[in-house]
């Protein structure tokens, strides 16, 4: 299994995503340049964190017109996995790969900290290594992470089990207090209808090594490796 991480101008999580794939799970990982039209035979495409095009205008709004996004969309339409993290989540929403949008945090401040989130879906190709209700500690670092969508879209996401992760207390309770950015229903990550695109604000690629504080993000990569859904 080969990973490809897209480098948009202003991406800064590309390096971490590649290291997670290469060091933590020992898979080949290459950088994909935003101006190219070549996915270099990668099986998993990662849209990484960062500030593509400075997050000017709207986060993700400009990056989604990058040449490589044509190929990423084709890859996703084919049912192949796309992991969209933080700014990548914003790009995926702008590109129509995922429903909804990400607004300024309710606090109006950037938030960088270790958060706890509850696993809501344990059967997707990204999450089947986790169990439902499992509590994960994963870093967040974003200014625009408040997930929002039309009520009927949210209802569908909830009804179809497409909410992957939800911000929670360490005990697994979901409350406004633990909802670090004011997302609707405390949503931290969602999956598309076909089940092959995961968008999430927390950074699983920053939680793959005990030295830096958490290994709770490894499950996302291990789930992809196993390739089979439970």
């Amino acid at each position: 299994m080969k990973f490809g991480v897209v480098t948009f101008p202003g991406s800064n999580g590309d390096y971490d995503a590649c290291h997670a794939a290469a060091d933590a799970i020992g898979r080949e990982c290459v950088y994909l340049w935003h101006k190219d039209h070549d996915l270099k035979g990668c099986d998993v495409i990662v849209l990484p964190g960062g500030f593509s095009y400075g997050d000017y205008l709207r986060p993700g709004a400009i990056a989604r017109f990058s040449p490589i996004m044509n190929e990423v969309v084709v890859h996703a339409k084919r049912g192949a996995p796309v992991l969209a993290i933080c700014n990548g989540f914003q790009v995926a929403c702008e590109a129509g790969l995922l429903p909804g949008a990400l607004l300024r945090n309710a606090s109006l401040r950037f938030v960088s900290r270790l958060v706890t989130m509850r696993v809501e879906n344990d059967s997707s190709m990204f999450t089947h290594e986790y169990y439902k209700g499992q509590i994960l500690s994963v870093p967040v670092a974003h200014g625009d992470g408040r997930y929002t969508a039309d009520p009927d879209v949210v209802a569908r996401l909830e009804g179809e089990g497409r909410v992957a992760f939800r911000y929670s207390s360490t005990g697994g309770d979901v409350s406004d207090e633990d909802n670090i950015n004011g997302s609707v229903n405390g949503i931290a990550g969602i999956i598309n209808a076909a089940g092959n695109v995961l968008g999430m604000m927390p950074h699983p690629e920053r939680a793959v090594d005990p030295v830096i504080g958490s290994t709770d993000g490894l499950g996302v990569f291990h789930s992809l490796l196993d390739g089979v859904t439970a």
Binding site: N12, G13, Y15, D16, H19, A20, G49, R109, F110, V111, S112, R113, P139, A141, H203, E205, R206, V208, D209, V211, I212, G213
Partner: peptide
């Protein structure tokens, strides 16, 4: 203050 600073990017921060 420091929760407004990304302190974990580049995954070297122990």
């Amino acid at each position: 203050a420091y929760q407004q600073y990304d302190s974990t990017v580049r995954t070297n921060t122990v």
